[in-house]
């Protein structure tokens, strides 16, 4: 089966006064139709830039310097800008963190959704509104016909994010990239949206890349997980493998920092130090300064290890417990 999204060796760098900073470093993964891939990392790990790079939304001083992005087998990076533009919103679409920033405040929900339909398909305005209504229905918005008449400020945060997801769905894309879409929402609303998204992937076969810093969210939502650190995917595997049997010391440390896994009131195991600046990465393995298992090898050679579908970027991976 052709994967809905296949990313190979994607590298994005930004020109600064001190030279290039590589924000996404040789990132590869693929997502099959109907699967949800969780792209997890802390701030500055490059997870959002990865999503923007897949969409081809990198502007100067940034540039995608290497790699390929295939949507259902077609390489976006080989296309003309015009052809790329036709892909965006139709075959691959994106949902952003803050729905108030992505919806136009002076247009009715129905008008802006219909516009998104008519950009790609030559249909009447009436038909476009009907498509918009159906999309709102899919994401579980009650009374969708009335909501189309509303302006964004008349909707709650959760409703706005549903509108953003519905807009992404209008052309039944093969891939949806979602960048921290529930981070700004309350837990009860987040629960509602996660339930809708899971159902969406299962029912429509859309592949979803869910970018987040929240390990608990991906562990309960995603099929597969990629963990990013300093621009690299340091560990990749199924959700169960990565969460319950992490092999990379960073993933292990990250999971151990979550309070719910420990007895209340005890000190939490912590990763020392903080995420390095991308412009001042240590030699060899980017994580070695904070790693308890680091050796001389980690200082000199950047790790490059792949174990079948399970990828762990580490010279001394932790043993996978039974």
């Amino acid at each position: 089966m052709i994967p809905a999204l296949e990313v190979r060796g994607l590298t994005t760098r930004f020109a600064t006064r001190k030279g290039y900073v590589t924000a996404v470093n040789n990132v590869s993964f693929s997502v099959a139709p109907g699967r949800i891939m969780g792209l997890v990392g802390e701030s500055g790990s490059g997870k959002s830039v990865t999503a923007f790079s897949i969409m081809g939304l990198i502007d100067a001083p940034g540039e995608i310097s290497a790699g390929s992005v295939r949507i259902e087998g077609e390489d976006m990076r080989q296309m003309t800008p015009e052809a790329q533009r036709k892909m965006r919103g139709r075959r691959v679409s994106m949902v952003f963190q803050d729905p108030m920033m992505t919806l136009n405040p002076v247009l009715r929900v129905g008008d802006q959704m219909a516009m998104a339909v008519q950009v790609h398909d030559r249909v009447s305005k009436k038909a476009a509104w009907e498509r918009a209504r159906d999309a709102l229905d899919i994401v579980g918005i009650p009374a969708p016909t009335e909501r189309l008449q509303a302006y964004p400020h008349q909707l709650s945060g959760g409703m706005r994010q549903r509108v953003a997801i519905a807009t992404a769905l209008l052309h039944r894309p093969a891939v949806i990239l979602a960048d921290e879409p529930t981070t700004a929402l309350d837990v009860s609303i987040q629960g509602q949206i996660l339930a809708e998204v899971r159902r969406l992937a299962d029912d429509t076969g859309t592949a979803i890349v869910w970018v987040t810093h929240d390990l608990a969210v991906v562990s309960s939502l995603a099929d597969d997980i990629c963990v990013m650190y300093a621009g690299c995917i340091v560990e990749r595997g199924t959700a169960d493998q990565v969460i319950n049997h992490p092999c990379h010391p960073y993933t292990h440390g990250l999971i151990q920092s979550v309070p719910s896994l420990h007895e209340p009131g005890r000190k939490l195991p912590q990763i020392p130090g903080s995420t390095p600046q991308l412009s001042q990465l240590p030699s060899g393995c980017a994580f070695r300064n904070r790693c308890a298992h680091a050796t001389d090898l980690c200082r000199t050679d950047p790790p490059d290890a792949a174990r079948g579908e399970r990828r762990v970027l580490c010279h001394h991976p932790l043993e996978e417990e039974a």
Partner: peptide
């Protein structure tokens, strides 16, 4: 009860979400 049920937890595998209906 509903709040606790909405919170995703780590390591319990794929959740069956049973969210609170409606909004605050």
């Amino acid at each position: 009860e509903a709040l606790f049920a909405s919170v995703p937890t780590l390591g319990t595998g794929r959740a069956r979400f049973n969210p609170i209906k409606g909004e605050i």
